[in-house]
């Protein structure tokens, strides 16, 4: 079959293409603004300088190693938040008393700027990656707990009745009806959670001047190496993109029908 590749290629890759083009356009606009002097180049370096700085930060600043450090902290804190938050959420769903007692506190935890509590964590865990991971974990926990409870509670009653009419045990009911029904909402929670985790990890690295990308950005900024600083920030964005791509893959693999 001689199908025309043009329209179907556009239909399939249109959104990505459009995204990439608009990013490029934004970069060009900034380039023009900075070069024409409308925007001060000591506030925002021209994008071309940032691109040139990539080589420097990779070769001289070992950014790939730092990228790895941040990514590892992110993996540990992110998965720990899921591993701990999901069972806590399931427990709170079961126990109405605990749920009413805890829900507001957990909501407050989700909204609190945990990063600012870094001195407390420094005392507890010392100036080590442990502090960074624990803080990321704590900040990432609340959204998962809340969304887990919400997801389980939003299971359609008729599906629960189907389970009851089939005389399912409560563990069958949980694993075969409640949990799969809650999955889309849980994934929303994970997405929120991992955003919080990354912000906290890079933020704390920056504040206590330890570890991966956060520390590097701190150092480069103190040296007034603006193109380098922005190149470092680009790598932070890369970490986040990486995690969200993985998450999306896992999600569509786990729930193919939706």
């Amino acid at each position: 079959m001689a199908e025309k590749s043009g329209p179907s290629f556009l239909r399939r890759n249109g959104p990505e293409l459009f995204g990439a083009l608009s990013l490029l356009a934004a970069v060009l606009v900034f380039e023009a603004l900075v070069r024409s002097g409308i925007v001060n180049r000591f506030v925002i370096p021209p994008p071309s300088d940032i691109v040139l700085a990539f080589e420097r930060v990779i070769v001289e600043e070992n950014i790939l190693g730092r990228f790895r450090d941040t990514a590892v902290e992110m993996v540990i804190a992110g998965f720990a938040a899921v591993g701990v938050g999901v069972p806590i959420g399931a427990f709170l769903y079961r126990s109405a008393l605990w749920r009413r007692a805890m829900e507001d506190w957990i909501g407050a935890l989700a909204a609190a700027p945990i990063v600012l509590a870094f001195p407390l964590f420094l005392v507890l865990f010392g100036r080590s990656p442990k502090t960074i991971i624990v803080m990321g974990f704590v900040h990432g926990l609340a959204p998962i707990i809340l969304k887990m409870v919400e997801g389980l509670a939003s299971t359609r009653p008729v599906l629960i009745n189907v389970g009851r009419s089939l005389k399912m045990t409560s563990s069958q009911m949980f694993w075969k009806i409640l949990f799969p029904s809650a999955l889309p909402v849980i994934f929303t929670g994970i997405r929120l959670s991992w955003t919080f985790v990354l912000i906290t990890i890079v933020g704390v690295e920056y504040l206590i001047n330890l570890g991966g990308l956060g520390q590097l950005i701190n150092e480069l900024a103190e040296r007034y190496d603006l193109p380098g600083t922005y190149a470092g920030i680009c790598f932070v964005v890369l970490v986040s993109v990486l995690f969200f791509v993985i998450l999306e893959r896992v999600e569509s693999w786990l729930q193919p029908g939706r």
């Binding site: 008729v158 189907v162 029904s181 939706r258």
Partner: peptide, 9 residues
């Protein structure tokens, strides 16, 4: 059941 009751997953 009267309502739609298939498992979407």
């Amino acid at each position: 059941f009267q309502e739609e009751s298939t498992f979407p997953w």
